[in-house]
Design a binder for these strands. Structure first.
Lengths: 214, 214
DNA sequence: GAGTAAATGTATACCAGGTGCAGAAATCGT
DNA sequence: ACGATTTCTGCACCTGGTATACATTTACTC
């Protein structure tokens, strides 16, 4: 058990290689033929691994795709936690999202690299993957609610309400961007609109729906 | 096709009876033994129907449970559409939700009848059912966004943003109520708190998160 | 460096949800 | 009552996922 060693040990390295091999084989096949058109058995064969081993690394077929986003699940929560002490949570989240737009972070929906777009399309075409993304969203809500409670000592319910609103809005923005790129609009061309929409959305979050309806 | 006849025809009636028989058998078995512990084959047998026929009526196992909520998917959208002309959408939704609390509408999470609570628990215990509920939520968002666009001519993106916020908040409120009832709190005792929380939540929607964090 | 315990991997058989198909049975219009 | 049309059924089949029992590899100890 060499946990803090510089050398992770052969076993560990081999595991990582296998993990990557399976994941790569999966993504490659899925992108080429579609998620539902490729069976896990085929993925296992392409990765030169038994089906059972595949399921030892990835609990479900969907995880073969979604595990790459695992870090993003707690991203917003982390942003809130790590914000400067003179910054209010919502501002930190907005700044982070705008930075994501600049960097064309795929999670903002504003990345038009063919790989990313094909991945996006693949997910939308597979209901089980869409469902998985929803679960992902729920996880983000929970993490954010906890971060709000702990760093802005927001009361329980308020934290949950704020969290679901913030996550839902970010998600909607990203979906809107991705949708437009899927339609063929280049990211660079969309950028200005994406920023404006984000500003609008976060202003809505801050000021409420009052101004919309009245 | 006798759609408006008094006589629906034998075929139609039989279909409805079969539909109900399958659904009832499913719910009964699921409540008794748990969703994952009962196979669709068992449901089919209990309903005296072939497995193939079962899937002709319900596309997936989850639908055996969720089809009962189908109407609720567009409920908020309907409320917005049918609101009096001098009422703003958010107000209509709030009033409707508060009315739901009074009536102990299960969708508000404030119904503590044993049947309802067991159903709720059953759903939470089955990941695939939870996933299905999320999809349900997404449907509600879309329907509401459209209603907002059409009856309050809210611009596309704004409508979507408002819709996801409203749906998310209602959902959070319902979940919070249901959670407390699951904990053993009687609905009548919870009622006052539920109303206060709902008012708080809708005020948040109206006035924004500004007052929370600043 | 040999030997052993622990961890990983494999083959095989199995279960459950879901679909395709061919034909039997019920319902409908006339 | 009769043919046309739906609906139901049984069966075989595919796929995702799991259990079991066994083989292989790695790591640790002396």
């Amino acid at each position: 058990m060499s946990a803090v060693d510089g050398k992770p040990g052969l076993r560990e390295r081999k595991k990582q290689r296998t993990h990557a091999a399976i994941s790569d084989a999966a993504i490659t096949l899925f992108l080429e033929h579609g998620f539902n058109q490729v069976s896990v058995a085929q993925v296992a064969e392409a990765a030169e691994v038994s089906k059972r081993t595949l399921f030892a690394y990835f609990p479900t077929k969907e995880d073969l795709v979604v595990h790459r986003l695992a870090d993003h699940e707690t991203e917003t929560a982390r942003v809130v936690r790590d914000r400067p002490s003179d910054t209010v949570p919502l501002t930190a989240v907005r700044e982070h999202f705008l930075k994501g737009l600049i960097e064309r972070d795929p999670i903002t929906g504003l990345n038009d690299h063919p790989q990313v777009r094909r991945l996006h399309r693949m997910i939308l075409d597979a209901p089980s993957l869409v469902a998985r993304m929803e679960r992902f969203k729920t996880g983000a809500e929970r993490a954010l609610a906890q971060a709000l409670r702990e760093t802005a000592d927001t009361p329980e319910l308020t934290a949950r309400l704020a969290a679901v609103q913030i996550v839902a809005v970010q998600w909607a923005l990203a979906q809107d961007n991705a949708e437009r790129l899927a339609y063929g609009e280049p990211a660079d061309e969309r950028y200005a609109g994406a920023v404006a929409d984000a500003e609008h959305a976060f202003a809505l979050l801050e000021n409420g729906l009052r101004h919309v309806f009245m």
